[in-house]
Amino acid sequence: MSTTTFFCNLSVPILVGEDRYKYIPIVGVFRSIPFDQVDEWVMHPDGRPRSDRELAAEVLVEIRKPLGSSGRTAPHAFDVADILQLDRAAAIVVSTFLAALPRV
């Protein structure tokens, strides 16, 4: 089974101080999963739901800067762990992933 990835633009909050955050635009590189396995993916084997942070950490492969004037993306100063510090960022990542997941 080959692993495929897809890209998606999104804006996520990052911490900029104690209890302060700002939204930054990023290009998320996501690992694709078969659409017919999504129901199983969101649950633990015992039937409990997985957290947004767990799910986001599993599918968000890389963070890139949005397209610049050159038309290319470049690695971002932030990494996946930085982005997932806030629960709301993890929720944005998961919802964006599910909305953009190819239904093949």
Rank of each mutant, 00 (worst) to 15 (best):
P45Y: 02
L98Y: 05
P102C: 02
I92L: 14
A90S: 15
A99P: 01
R48F: 03
L60K: 12
V94T: 12
L101K: 04
P13V: 06
T3Q: 14
D87Y: 06
V12F: 15
S11M: 07
M43A: 03
V104G: 14
P45L: 08
I63A: 03
C8G: 15
L15Y: 12
V93Q: 05
F6L: 10
I26E: 05
N9I: 01
L84A: 07
R64S: 02
P102I: 01
P45S: 03
N9P: 03
V29D: 10
D36K: 07
P75Q: 03
W41K: 06
V80E: 05
G28A: 15
I24C: 00
L86A: 09
V61I: 11
Y23T: 06
F6D: 05
D52S: 13
I33V: 10
V29P: 00
D87I: 11
N9K: 13
R88I: 15
S32H: 13
T3H: 06
G17Y: 10
L15A: 15
I14D: 03
L67C: 00
F7V: 02
L55R: 15
D82H: 13
R48C: 01
F97G: 06
S70D: 15
V61C: 00
S11T: 15
F35E: 04
T3W: 02
R31M: 05
G47N: 09
I24S: 04
F78P: 00
G68L: 03
M1G: 08
I24Y: 13
A100L: 02
E58Q: 10
F35L: 01
A100I: 02
A91H: 01
L15N: 14
D79H: 12
A90G: 04
A89D: 07
W41S: 13
I63S: 01
T73P: 00
G68E: 14
L98K: 09
F6M: 02
F30R: 11
A74H: 08
H44Y: 11
A81I: 10
R20A: 13
F6Y: 15
R31W: 05
V16L: 08
T96E: 10
V104L: 11
R31S: 12
R72A: 14
E40I: 04
L98I: 14
A91V: 05
I83T: 05
R53M: 06
W41N: 05
D87C: 03
T73R: 09
S2W: 00
A100Y: 04
R50T: 03
F7K: 15
V80I: 01
L67M: 05
K22T: 15
E40F: 07
R88P: 00
E58R: 13
V27F: 01
V93M: 08
P45M: 01
V16N: 11
I14G: 08
S32C: 14
A100F: 04
D46L: 06
G17I: 09
Y21P: 00
I24L: 14
I24H: 07
D36T: 13
W41G: 13
F35D: 05
R31N: 10
L98A: 09
M43E: 14
F35T: 08
R53E: 11
P34F: 11
